[in-house]
Amino acid sequence: MTDQNATATDGGSVAASAGAGATRTATAPDAVTVSGVSRVFGSRGREASVTALDDVSLDVAPGEFVSLIGPSGCGKSTLLRLIADLDQPSSGQISVFGKPARRARIDQDYGIAFQQAGLLPWRTVAANIELPLELHRVGAAERRTRVGDLLSLVGLDDFGSKYPDQLSGGMQQRVAIARALAESPRLLLMDEPFGALDEMTRERMQNELLRICAETDAAVVFVTHSIPEAVFLSHRVVVMSPRPGRIVDVIPVGLGSTADRGEALREDAGFFDAVGAVREALHGHPVSAGPATSATSTGSAGEAREGANLCEPSGRPAGRESR
């Protein structure tokens, strides 16, 4: 197991296809394809324009768990909102399951959880979870069974008839996650969903999220500020830098199938190695690829790493991104 915990620095070890739960056929389109995307927020009046994202490229395979990490204001939320078609890029292309982001939104191809739970306070927990089903005209009987399933999935069986203001912050987050999962999306977009939780609840929620992802086989784009959280959850960690927002590094986490990750992993040496690698990338000392090249052509550092050690967990062949 420890051999697989290769980080970018020890290039030799080869992890076999660690099985991201992604039994991907050759023709299946990527869950998310972001190519050369920039987002410049307009200069209204005398305000200077802000380049929130600059030439960002990123692919997420079906069933793959990818975390976005970076200092505040580096454009993580902006990137997530672009994928969700809640905002449009100034330039570049985004496709979700091979279609334009707008089409994917209208087809309801993703579920989303925001940093704030964003529950409707006048609806009960159950009514909040069934909101997307109700909006998309799912029958009442089917809704009821689905909500029952989701409530037990997030461990809130007895709280269906409560109102959000009667729940703790962590419970509200779990309701929001259940709501995001309601239509069993193949893609989950999550913006710091555990940001407001205490450490213990947070770790429990991480375990639950991995279990849910294994069950539903969903791809996840997960924004976080926590390095251990990113490493624990992800197949790959995307490290971003601010002003302008860029991808400085993509770090494959060679910790095996995310479905098998448990509490023990948090004590694992490989876990700490990966945490170290992400921290290094975050603080701006890339180890393998030259920083000069990775600064403009985003993701190139990640390519270099993948080429070096093939430990991308979804079994993605090396150099695939450079096609």
């Binding site: 969700a84 078609d85 809640l86 939104r105 209208i106 925001f114 964003g118 409707l120 909101l131 909006l135």
Partner: peptide, 20 residues
């Protein structure tokens, strides 16, 4: 966040008025 949520659900204007 509620406006974003409704957009993410591709809700129609009438639905947005009624639910949010």
């Amino acid at each position: 966040v509620h406006r974003d949520l409704m957009r993410a659900y591709a809700a129609k204007p009438v639905q947005v008025t009624r639910t949010v």
